[in-house]
């Protein structure tokens, strides 16, 4: 392409010549604000990973702290839990068998397997390791009637912890989050302020991981910040 331009006759001059000197301050004013520097992921060197929540201010409240964990690997896994070969293959690849108890989480090192349905799970890996996990699962499950899909970029994760974390969530969530009904190691797909989410309680602090679609992330983040204001 560059070659052609050089040799082609009467190539049109760049348009800036027409615009004249008046164009210069205008373009300078229209320049977008400098985006916060995004770090490249291990999965794609040189490509800057960006999150919809980059640079978003948090709650500023010690008892309801919100931090984003944007690029954790998330692999959707489907298969038949009644098939021992399926359970064994997933254990080989991910370190833990997919939990068969509804709404529970299996942990293996830094990997987590969250129950989504009776034949569906979300395998969560550290950032940048989703490709290797997808390959490992694919190899271990070769020949079986399963589905392994990397959905890392579909959702982001909001981690919320502190003494008032539960109080903030229950303002918009119909799920019973009382400790007698929902505790560490449990997960559930539900709604917060009309946004579909997957909630995983990590510990008694309580700490919650809230998985939300990237397209809903700013809305939900801002809603949570607003909901937390009464606890400041």
């Amino acid at each position: 392409m560059v070659e052609k331009k050089k040799t082609g006759k009467a190539a049109p001059k760049p348009k800036k010549a027409k615009a004249g000197p008046a164009a210069k301050p205008e373009t300078a004013a229209a320049a977008p604000p400098v985006a916060p520097a995004a770090k490249p992921t291990a999965a794609a060197p040189g490509v800057a990973a960006a999150s919809p929540l980059d640079g978003r201010p948090g709650t500023g409240i010690d008892t309801a702290v919100m931090v984003e964990h944007p690029h954790a690997g998330k692999i959707n896994l489907r298969g038949d839990p009644a098939d021992q070969a399926f359970l064994d293959a997933v254990r080989d690849a991910a370190g833990a068998a997919p939990p068969t108890d509804a709404n529970t989480v299996a942990t293996a090192g830094r990997n987590e397997i969250l129950w989504l349905g009776p034949d569906e799970w979300l395998v969560v890996t550290p950032e940048g390791e989703q490709g290797a996990m997808e390959t490992a699962l694919g190899a271990a499950l070769a020949g079986q009637h399963v589905s392994v899909v990397d959905t890392t970029d579909a959702r982001t994760t909001i981690r919320m912890h502190g003494a008032h974390a539960r109080d903030v969530l229950v303002k918009g969530c119909p799920l019973d989050l009382h400790p007698r009904a929902f505790g560490p190691g449990q997960c559930a797909q539900t709604i917060i302020a009309k946004a579909d989410v997957l909630i995983h309680q990590r510990d008694d602090a309580p700490t919650y991981d809230i998985y939300v679609l990237c397209s809903f992330a700013r809305y939900l983040w801002d809603w949570l910040v607003d909901a937390a204001r009464e606890f400041s």
Binding site: N103, P118, I191
Partner: peptide, 9 residues
């Protein structure tokens, strides 16, 4: 599978 949940779900 999930037990009692809100009608809105």
């Amino acid at each position: 599978w999930c037990g009692p949940r809100s009608q809105t779900e």
